[in-house]
Design a protein around this nucleic acid. Structure first.
Lengths: 251, 251
DNA sequence: CGTTGCGTTGAATAAGGTCAAATAGAGTGG
DNA sequence: CCACTCTATTTGACCTTATTCAACGCAACG
């Protein structure tokens, strides 16, 4: 029995754009959940992805408070995650692109703790969590990789805390741009030329500052020929210069 | 063969203060890794803890860059974790007390990403990570619980980001005090009367502000009869008042 | 071609940081 | 027990940075 048959005979909701590709032949294989797994292990996790889901720009993948059931691998597109404080303020906690895993915030309480909104038309692979746990108890590489991913999420968050707690506005923006650049590079896009998918307000929220401040910093960077900014389009002109901005000048 | 015999016959380094107690009869059972496990499951994880380690106040449990091999459960005492930025600044990312798990930052890269320092004489249970992965592949409840713990760490970090990114100094301090109070309560201590183990500088680092600002906010809270502060001793006088400070007045 | 949402810019203001000095404890050695 | 240190903390005066408020520009869209 081929994998295809096994998939199609399983009872589940079938949407238009599932099927077609498995982890085995997904181009994101080395950025995503299967990262570092052997050929054999990847095949074992192929049937993890129950289905996929398209999320149009501005649509919500899930909301804080929603019941948790699955985690999601970003297949294409761009997302933001936000947390809501008791008194209604919300804060962007991250931006997410292809290969990244969403939803791990829900494991602890069976309810999602943040909301995920697509910033452009996107697609995610849906991985039912009970199935992930089941398979990862058998496939040692998957267990390791999943733990690695959660750990990296924690480390990433610590990096953001460092940014929010100890950097000034210019340093934050510089770090933000360099981080984006690096992630685009890892996905085969230009390191120096990209479009921001988020608004100034979303950037500000993520970086703990007001949108006007973000705009001012962009303008200042432009005057200093570090970047070229035209609306959402960014061209990084001077990577070493930006790196120096992130705080190394303090040495 | 009793559990005790099984333990003492196993070949391993024996320090003075290990043995004595297992997860099964540890008082922190319901706060720590075994939380929510069945009697039977807890027995299966009793031999997870290879050994314990005392860490005197101001000593380091591990440092950023150290090879990762184990995670740690705080048995007693109080710790801080710090991350170091490339340019030498460091930032406190958390304070940790009995029952909490340390070290998960190292899973992703096999190197610890932050440093852990004891703020008073403390003791941790050392849980070799390969063993944890091995056992959690068999004991389903342990697998779930470990995932829950990592997830909660992520959610906690998001909470800190919210605090750092969107609250003002007074709100941060109020949230900090209420958080401590709640965690002390969960451990059977007074909700309103406790000693801070950390300096103003460490609090400031955690909350993204300078020690002078922390001190000023404490003084202001004291004038408003929200708390009584005498050096490291804190008495919370008005919980609802403090809660209002955390931002609810913005509504 | 007006409307709408997003982005930029300027001026005034507030929040917190910096620098400096005074004070309070905790621990030490005589 | 007391004087002495050392460090943590508090407080004040001043300064820097980012926020607030407001106006304006620009591009997309009906």
């Amino acid at each position: 029995m081929t994998r295809e048959t096994a998939m199609t005979t399983a009872a589940r909701v079938v949407t238009l754009h599932e099927l077609k590709s498995t982890c085995s032949d997904c181009s994101l294989r080395e950025l995503c959940l299967p990262m570092g797994l052997t050929e054999e292990e990847v095949e074992q996790i192929d049937h993890l992805v129950a289905t996929r889901r398209r999320v149009r720009g501005a649509e919500t993948l899930y909301r804080a408070g929603d019941a948790f059931g699955s985690i999601y691998a970003v297949r294409s597109g761009f997302f933001k995650s936000t947390v809501l404080s008791e008194d209604g303020r919300d804060q962007v906690t991250g931006f997410h692109m292809a290969g990244e895993i969403l939803g791990m915030d829900g494991i602890g309480t069976e309810k999602h703790a943040c909301s995920i909104v697509a910033l452009e038309d996107s697609e995610v692979c849906i991985i039912p969590f009970p199935r992930l746990e089941e398979v990862s108890a058998k496939v040692r590489g998957l267990q390791r990789q999943f733990h690695r991913l959660m750990s990296r999420e924690i480390v990433r968050d610590h990096g953001v805390m460092l940014l929010l707690g100890s950097m000034r506005a210019e340093e934050r923006v510089a770090a933000f741009l360099l981080n984006l650049s690096q992630r685009f590079t890892a996905r085969g896009y230009s390191p120096s030329d990209f479009n921001l998918r988020m608004t100034r307000e979303e950037i500000g929220s993520y970086l703990g500052m007001k949108l006007e401040t973000v705009s001012r910093v962009f303008s200042r960077f432009q005057e200093e020929h570090l970047v070229e900014v035209r609306q959402k389009h960014i061209r990084i002109l001077d990577v070493p210069g930006l790196s120096r901005m992130t705080g190394k000048e303090a040495c």
